[in-house]
Nucleic acid binder design. Structure first.
Lengths: 341, 341
DNA sequence: CTGTTAGCGCGTTCAA
DNA sequence: TTGAACGCGCTAACAG
């Protein structure tokens, strides 16, 4: 296996074959205006030398990078890794490359990334905004430069970009109804406070179900944060009080886990003393003690659909009107943690 | 907010300011040969118009893309998403962009990706090979083109590239010893069969511990595959036999989950009838029924270290000899599933 | 069917 | 301190 640091360009091939670079270029992409004989010769040599066209040069020339960017808050989260999987699959099929950016829920970082992407590095962008994002100008600026943008899951309401989400409101409503149907009467909603549309949707779904069932029931909304320690404290004092709730609906997986931890610590039995349900995409919840009932979001499909829509935009194909605001339903899976006694 | 489809280049700025493009270019990167006055003017306008240098053009010119590629088998796996997180963080600090590729354990896809990357699209590559990979020429070819490569976790033994792993052998040995110390005498090892070095390392660690304890003990090695259904069948027949093992050591998380499923189904009590330990990076195993003892790999650090080494290579800095084969220890966390009765 | 020419936008000579 | 000219490697328009 010989080493070679010298790069092989069209020129190399052309010189070797006594052809012009344009002929070689055309031959390689199977242009019909080149004789089969020449095509074969060229391709054979290219193959032999392991030629592959310089990326920067060809994308400079064609103002096309065959690359998209995906911006997400975190990757250590089953929802996002499943979505990423869907996106990557679509991109792979299209022959596109995928840049990944993690904001770690930092708005400034998010804005910086979007700025970096305005220079032709990518042909399109997909984003799920951070929970500290409270202004969407950076998204608008990107759109203004002519780069297609698709939002998914955590969308920007005020921006005119296609969005793919799940039915957070109705899923939350159904989850609450499920708790009620299992006998719960005092249901607390653990909310991950933020200005995100999905947070509000989920809270509204909860409220709607509560009021639908009994106009006089006082909803219990507990705002939590990102710190596990503090969340556990909050949940602890919630469960220790005299009139403690008989059910908890966690808006995000993290809070369900905190709830379990507190219950294990305090010796509260699930579901006898407390029923629990949560949004979560973690398959392993089926092995929890007890198995956790969940609202599962179609993360993989969301990623796939969002990707498909982005490529339509990139290829300037028309969008169905349904694709401008696409919602894919979540599924409720009831397990032990919400079983009636 | 006005729309503009026209891109802003050096030329735009130059024309506007009655300067040459070279002056503008130099001014923007704070060259000392440009007067402060001019610099200010130029930067102000660039900022105002939101100029950002065309990516393809500048990387063509400098033969530098400020981009790295990360190739992994899957992302829906805590180990890889944690590693990815570490990598992204290092890259972000360095001002680099990260391309992500998922092979889905497909060797052909892996080879194809590596071929795509030989054209100057990236300045460096990190890979954790697929479990169907049995030849490493595609890695060597990449190295031959002069692109730095770092392997992590699932490394290619025969390739001369820096590698970052964990101490699979000794961790597996310790895990087995732990089972023995908890009273287990008939320990089965569930292996994810493959030609991967880490698979062998783990198996060897298991064997070493078994033989160390008692030369006459017959090891029980059960080869499993990727299909959950079949794995469960295999485990079922293993546990149903007369002389069933009293402990299971799962080489990967998936197999521990299959084991739990089977035990729940057959009513086998963990840890009383069967102790279980597994390699796994899933934090939620602490909530399993019962809490699962695990060997936790330092995924995040592996990603971070591998990234750091790759950037040294890219920047042609010298490597410490320890960095050519770096091993970061795993930690055993013992929970209920391995408690002695 | 093939070659010549030109230019994508940038950064780096060399010259003034 | 600034400008003119060149070329990175590729592709597309225009000839022949």
């Amino acid at each position: 296996m010989q080493k070679r640091e010298d790069t092989i360009t069209l020129k190399t091939l052309a010189k070797e074959l006594n052809l012009s670079t344009s002929t070689v270029s055309r031959a390689l992409k199977g242009s019909h205006e080149i004789s089969e004989q020449t095509q074969k010769k060229v391709k054979a040599l290219a193959d032999k030398l392991g030629y592959s066209p310089n990326f920067s040069a060809s994308s400079l020339r064609q103002s096309k990078s065959r690359t998209i960017a995906v911006i997400i808050p975190e990757i250590e989260n089953t929802f996002f890794s499943q979505a990423m999987n869907g996106i990557e699959e679509v991109a792979q099929k299209k022959g596109y490359h995928v840049l990944i950016y993690l904001t770690n829920e930092d708005f400034l970082r998010e804005r910086e990334i979007l700025k970096l992407l305005r220079n032709g590095r990518v042909d399109g962008v997909m984003i799920s905004v951070s929970n500290t994002t409270d202004s969407f100008e950076h998204l608008q600026e990107l759109i203004n430069t002519g780069i297609p943008l698709v939002c998914f899951d955590r969308v920007a309401e005020s921006i005119d970009a296609p969005r793919v989400t799940t039915d957070d409101l109705s899923a939350a409503q159904q989850a609450t109804q499920h708790l009620i149907s299992q006998g719960a009467r005092k249901i607390a909603f653990l909310s991950m406070s933020s200005g995100l549309s999905i947070s509000n949707q989920r809270k509204h779904g909860y409220l709607k179900a509560i009021q639908q069932h009994d106009r006089n029931t006082e909803p219990i909304i507990v705002e939590c944060g990102t710190n596990d320690q503090e969340n556990r404290k909050v949940i602890q004092s919630l469960l220790k009080q005299k009139q403690a709730p008989d059910a908890i609906f966690a808006a995000v997986e993290k809070l369900a886990i905190n709830t379990y931890e507190v219950c294990h610590e305090l010796g509260i039995r699930i579901p006898e003393q407390l029923k629990v349900i949560s949004f979560s995409n973690l398959p392993a919840v089926a092995l929890f003690n007890p198995a956790l009932s969940t609202i599962v979001q179609p993360a993989y499909q969301i990623g796939k659909e969002a990707g498909t829509i982005l490529f339509k935009l990139i290829e300037k194909k028309p969008l169905y009107s349904s694709e401008r605001k696409l919602s894919i339903p979540s599924k409720i899976i009831d397990r032990q943690s919400t079983q009636s006694s």
